[in-house]
C-alpha cells in the first residue's frame, strides 16, 4: 500500500514538474509584460524598462533557457516564485489568497455535497414520482446554467429584496464591509454572514446539481441490484434495506468525487469570486493574465496542478478506504 502510494506520488511529481514547465514556456512566449511599460506616459527609458523586466526574470531579451534556469533556481533553492512586473512577490500574494478562497468555498461546498447526495438518493427512491420529476427538472436547469449566470441572477434577486425590506439585508461586495461597523454586539460576524450568504448559495446550487445527478443514477443502480433485493426478500424493512445496503454502496463513487473536489475547489470558484468581489485564487489567475504577470500565472497553474494531483491521490485513498473490494497491495 505504502509502496504503491509512493510510486504514484513520484509519478505525479514528475508529471507536475513537466506540466508546470510547459505552462512556464507558454506564459513566457505568449505574454508580453514589456507592453505594460512601453505605453506609459511620460515614456520610460528603454534601459530602465529592461532593468525592471530583468529583475522579474521576464525580459524577452534574455534567452529562454537562461530565464528557465533562473526560475528553476528560485523555485527549488529558495521557494521563490518570482515577482509580478509591478514588483510584488507572487508567493505572498498566493499565500494570502488561498485562505480567501478557502473561506469562500468551504461552507458552500459542504452544503452542496450533503444536499446533493441527500436529494439524489431521495429522488432515486421516489423514481418517476412527482417529487423526483420536480427535483430532476430543477437540477437539469441548474446543470445547464453556468455559475456567472446563477451569480448574477442571485444578485439581481437580492437587490430587489434589499429594496423591498428597505435596508441592505444582503451584501455582495467582498468578504466584509470596509467602513466602521454598527455598535451592536457581534456586528463583525453579522456583517460577514451578510456577505457570505449569496456566494454560498451559488456554490451550494452548483455542487448540488452535479451531485444529485450522480447520486441518483448510482442509487438507482444500487436499488436494482441483487443484494438489495435479497435483503428485502429476507424480510428487511424497506428503510433499512435502502439505508444500509443501497445507500452505502452507492456512496463509494461519490466519496471519490468528494475527495477529488476537495482539492480542486481552490481554483474552481473563479466566477463566483469575480461576481462577489472576493480576492481569491481563481480571480488572481484571471488578473495575472490581464496584467501580463508571467510569474503569477505560472504559480497559479502550478497550484492548480498540485490541487488536481492531491485530489487524485485523495480519491484513490478514498476508494481503498471505502470499498472493501479494492486491494492496493
Amino acid at each position: 500500500m505504502v509502496r504503491y502510494l509512493l510510486l504514484r506520488v513520484a509519478n505525479y511529481a514528475v508529471l507536475l514538474f513537466i506540466a508546470v514547465s510547459l505552462a512556464w514556456v507558454l506564459a513566457q512566449t505568449q505574454l508580453h509584460p514589456r507592453q505594460l511599460f512601453e505605453v506609459r506616459t511620460p515614456p520610460l527609458d528603454p534601459r530602465s524598462i529592461e532593468n525592471i523586466l530583468r529583475a522579474a526574470n521576464v525580459s524577452d531579451q534574455v534567452p529562454l533557457w537562461d530565464r528557465y534556469v533562473t526560475w528553476l533556481r528560485g523555485v527549488f533553492l529558495h521557494w521563490d516564485w518570482g515577482t509580478s512586473p509591478g514588483g510584488g512577490a507572487v508567493g505572498d500574494e498566493i499565500g494570502r489568497r488561498i485562505w480567501v478562497s478557502f473561506r469562500l468555498v468551504t461552507i458552500g461546498w459542504l452544503l452542496g455535497t450533503v444536499l446533493g447526495v441527500a436529494l439524489g438518493a431521495w429522488s432515486a427512491v421516489r423514481q418517476y414520482r412527482i417529487s423526483d420529476r420536480v427535483v430532476t427538472a430543477i437540477v437539469l436547469i441548474l446543470v445547464a446554467t453556468p455559475s456567472y449566470v446563477t451569480g448574477e441572477v442571485t444578485k439581481m434577486v437580492a437587490t430587489a429584496v434589499n429594496k423591498q425590506v428597505g435596508f441592505q439585508l444582503f451584501l455582495f461586495l467582498g468578504e466584509k464591509s470596509t467602513g466602521t461597523l454598527p455598535g451592536y454586539p457581534l456586528a463583525g460576524l453579522v456583517d460577514r454572514v451578510q456577505h457570505m450568504v449569496l456566494p454560498t448559495l451559488v456554490l451550494t446550487l452548483l455542487g448540488l446539481a452535479g451531485l444529485q445527478r450522480l447520486q441518483r443514477s448510482l442509487m438507482l443502480d444500487a436499488l436494482g441490484s441483487d443484494f438489495v433485493r435479497t435483503a428485502r426478500a429476507k424480510g428487511l424493512r424497506e428503510n433499512r434495506a435502502v439505508m444500509k445496503h443501497a445507500l452505502r454502496t452507492a456512496l463509494i463513487p461519490t466519496g471519490t468525487y468528494f475527495a477529488f473536489q476537495a482539492a480542486t475547489l481552490f481554483v474552481g470558484a473563479t466566477y463566483t469570486e469575480r461576481i462577489f468581489a472576493f480576492q481569491g485564487m481563481g480571480i488572481y489567475g484571471v488578473d495575472t493574465i490581464a496584467t501580463q504577470n508571467i510569474n503569477g500565472i505560472v504559480a497559479v497553474t502550478a497550484f492548480g496542478g498540485l490541487c488536481y494531483l492531491v485530489g487524485a491521490i485523495l480519491a484513490d485513498l478514498m476508494v481503498a478506504f471505502l470499498d472493501p473490494r479494492v486491494r492496493l497491495s
Binding site: 510547459l22 505552462a23 481554483v267 473563479t270 500565472i297 497553474t301 492548480g304
Partner: peptide, 10 residues
C-alpha cells in the same frame, strides 16, 4: 493536470 482555462486564456 494543467488548468486548461488559464492556458487557453494565456
Amino acid at each position: 493536470v494543467l488548468p486548461s482555462f488559464f492556458l487557453i486564456a494565456v
